[in-house]
Amino acid sequence: MTTTQTKAAVRPQADVPKKPVRRRREGAAWVFLSPWVLGACVLTLLPMAVSLYLSFTDYDLFNAPNWVGLRNYTQMFTEDPRYWRSVGATLTYVVIAVPLQLGLALAVALALKTMRRGRAFYRSAFYAPSLLGASMSIALVWRAIFNDGGTVDNLFGTGGWVNKPGWALFAVALLTVWQFGAPMVIFLAGLQQIPGELYEAAEVDGASRWRQFLSITVPMLSPVIFFNLVLQTIQAFQVFTPAFAVSAGKGGPADSTLFYTLYLYDRGFVASHMGYASAMAWVLLIAIGAVTAVLFRTSRSWVFYASEGDR
C-alpha cells in the first residue's frame, strides 16, 4: 500500500514508473488472453492447417496418411454424384428456409412493434421454439408429424412428406422457419431503435404506411437485416440434426435430405474416408467464405449505416 502511495506522489515530477506499468499491463493482457490464444492455435488454426493437409491424402484414422495430391477434389467434383446431390440439397434448403424464416421474423416483429399490451408475452412465446428446435426431441416430433399417417398427412391428404423426395426437404425447411424467434427478437430490438420522429415527420408529409416502411423502416433496419441474413445463412449451411432424424442418418429419400454436413459425416465418420471428408470441409469453408464475401459486397448498395450518413 505504501509503495503505491509513494509512486502516486512521485508521478507528477518524473515519468519514470510509467513504462514498466504499461509493460506489466501488456503482460496482464496476455495472461487474460492465454486460454483463448491456446484455443485459437490448438483447436482452430492447427486443425485448419491439418485438415488442409489431410484433404490431399488418403487417411482412414488407423494407417498413416497417404499423399494423393488433388485426387479427393477431382473425385468429389467429377466422379461423385452423391456429392453434387448433397450440394444441391443444401443450396435448395438454404434458399428456401432462410428467406422464409427471415420474412416471417420481420413480419412478426413489425406486428409486435405496434402492439402496446402483450408484446413482451408474444416476444417470449415466439422465441421459445428457437431454443427447443435444435434438439433431437423436436426433430423426432417433426419426423412423426410429417410422416405417413401423421398430422400433415391427415390434414391435407398429401401423404407423409418425409418419404417423398420432393417434399422431405421442405419439411426440414419448415422446422427452420418454426425457429424464427431468434431473428425476430433481433429485428424487434432494431425496430425499437428507429427514432419515432422520422415517422412523425413522414406522417406530416403525408407518406403512406407502405411508403414509410420502404423509406424509413427498411433503410434504418438494413444493418440488422444484414446481420440476420449473414448469421442465418451461415447457420443454415451447417444444419445437421433434423436431416439426420428425418432420414435416419441416411439423407433419404433419394438423397433429397443429404445435407452437406450429413454427407461429410457419412464420408468421414461412417466410411472412414477422413481425407475425402477434409476436402469436403475445406470446400464448405471456402463456399461459406465466398457467400459471406458476396453478401458483404452487395451490402454496400443496400445497407445503410446512420452514422455514415452524418459524415
Binding site: 483463448w36 485459437a40 490448438v42 483447436l43 482452430t44 492447427l46 486443425p47 485448419m48 491439418v50 485438415s51 489431410l54 484414422l61 449473414v230 451461415i234 449451411f237 451447417q238 454436413t261 461429410l264 468421414g268 465418420f269 477422413m274 471428408a277 477434409s278 470441409a281 475445406w282 464448405l284 469453408l285 461459406i288 459471406t292
Partner: peptide
C-alpha cells in the same frame, strides 16, 4: 476472433477429432 464466429464447425472437426 470475430471471424471465428462465422467459421463452420465442420472445417476444424476432423483434425480436432484426430487430435
Amino acid at each position: 476472433m470475430i471471424a471465428t464466429i462465422m467459421l463452420p464447425h465442420h472445417a476444424v472437426l476432423i483434425p480436432q477429432y484426430i487430435i
